[in-house]
C-alpha cells in the first residue's frame, strides 16, 4: 500500500484545502498545469494505479475544449478586444484573449480535480469519519450514525437492483440514458421508503444498546494522527510554496485573484 493511503485522512484534507483555494485564485495557465503535474507525481509515487487518475481526468479534457470554444462567445468584448483577432465566426470576432480565458478556466478545473484525487483515490470514507470523530471532535452520535448509514450502502445498492428487477419484470423501462434516469426517478421513492424503515430499526437497536448514553466512548478501531501526518502537511505546503516560487521566478505565476485577468 502506498504512503498516501497510510496517512490520516484529516491530514490530507488539512494539506489540500488551502492549496485548492490557492489554485482557484490563479489567473495564469502555468500554475494550474504545474499543480496538475505535482498531483500526478504524488499519485504515482504512492503507487496509485494511473488508469484511476486518467479515468477521472479524461472527461476534463472535453471540459477544457468546451471552455476554449465557448468563452469567446460569452466573455465581455471590452475585456479582450485589445488582444489579436484570430478569426471571425458568423461575424463574431474570436479574440486570442477570450480563448486564453477559456483555457485558464479549464486548466484550473483540471488542477482542482487532480489535487482532489490525492484524497479521493487514497482514502477510505469510514476512516475519514473515524478521524472526524476521534481527532476533529465531531460528536460521536453524529459520526457513528453516519457510519452506520455508510454500512447500508451495499444493502441500498442491492435494494436498488431489486427495485429495478421488479420494474423490468413488469415490463417498465426503456434502454438508454433517458431510460436510466426515468428508472432512477421510479426507484427513488421505494428506495427512500425502505431506507428509512431500515434506519428506524437500526436506531431502535442502537438506543436499546444505550448508544449515546455517555459523553465519551471507546473505539473499536483507532485512527491516529502521527508526527508523520504533520510532516506530510508541512512538506506538502513547502512543496507547493516551492512550485509557486519557481513559477514566480520564471515570471508565469500571475496575480492571485478572483477577478479574471484577460
Amino acid at each position: 500500500m502506498g504512503w498516501l493511503y497510510r496517512l490520516n485522512p484529516l491530514a490530507k484534507v488539512i494539506a489540500l484545502a488551502p492549496v485548492l483555494a490557492v489554485v482557484a485564485l490563479t489567473t495564469d495557465p502555468f500554475a494550474p498545469l504545474a499543480f496538475t503535474a505535482l498531483a500526478l507525481v504524488l499519485l504515482a509515487s504512492s503507487r496509485v494505479p494511473l488508469h484511476s487518475a486518467l479515468y477521472a481526468l479524461a472527461p476534463m479534457l472535453l471540459v477544457l475544449l468546451g471552455f476554449v470554444v465557448l468563452y469567446p462567445f460569452l466573455i465581455r468584448r471590452e475585456l479582450v478586444s485589445h488582444t489579436p483577432t484570430l478569426l471571425q465566426v458568423g461575424g463574431v470576432p474570436i479574440y486570442e484573449g477570450a480563448i486564453m480565458a477559456g483555457l485558464r478556466a479549464g486548466l484550473r478545473i483540471i488542477a482542482l480535480v487532480s489535487l482532489a484525487l490525492l484524497f479521493n483515490l487514497t482514502t477510505d470514507v469510514s476512516d475519514f469519519m473515524r478521524a472526524l470523530v476521534q481527532q476533529a471532535r465531531l460528536p460521536y452520535r453524529i459520526g457513528y450514525s453516519i457510519m452506520v448509514a455508510l454500512r447500508f450502502a451495499p444493502l441500498l445498492r442491492y435494494e436498488l437492483e431489486l427495485i429495478r428487477s421488479a420494474h423490468r419484470v413488469r415490463g417498465i423501462g426503456q434502454p438508454g440514458l433517458l431510460g436510466d434516469f426515468a428508472q432512477l426517478r421510479r426507484a427513488i421513492v421505494p428506495l427512500l421508503a425502505s431506507s428509512i424503515r431500515r434506519a428506524e430499526r437500526a436506531a431502535l437497536a442502537m438506543d436499546g444498546r444505550a448508544f449515546g448514553a455517555f459523553s465519551t466512548r471507546t473505539h473499536f478501531r483507532r485512527v491516529r494522527l502521527t508526527p508523520l501526518d504533520g510532516a506530510f502537511v508541512l512538506a506538502f505546503w513547502a512543496l507547493v510554496a516551492l512550485v509557486m516560487l519557481a513559477l514566480q521566478a520564471l515570471g508565469v505565476l500571475g496575480p492571485l485573484s478572483f477577478v479574471q485577468r484577460v
Binding site: 460528536p139 452520535r141 453524529i142 450514525s145 453516519i146 452506520v148 448509514a149 455508510l150 447500508f152 450502502a153 441500498l156 436498488l160 432512477l184 426507484a187 427513488i188 428506495l191 427512500l192 431506507s195 428509512i196 431500515r198 434506519a199 428506524e200 437500526a202 436506531a203 431502535l204 442502537m206 438506543d207 448508544f211 449515546g212 448514553a213 455517555f214 459523553s215
Partner: peptide
C-alpha cells in the same frame, strides 16, 4: 449525559439515522 444533551438538544438517534439514510439514498 448533560454534555451530550447540550450539544445535540433535539436530535434523537432515530432522526440522526433517518437523516443519514436519506442522504445515502440520495447519493445514488
Amino acid at each position: 449525559s448533560r454534555a451530550v444533551r447540550l450539544a445535540l438538544p433535539a436530535w434523537t438517534t432515530r432522526e440522526l439515522l433517518t437523516a443519514s439514510v436519506i442522504a445515502m439514498a440520495f447519493t445514488v
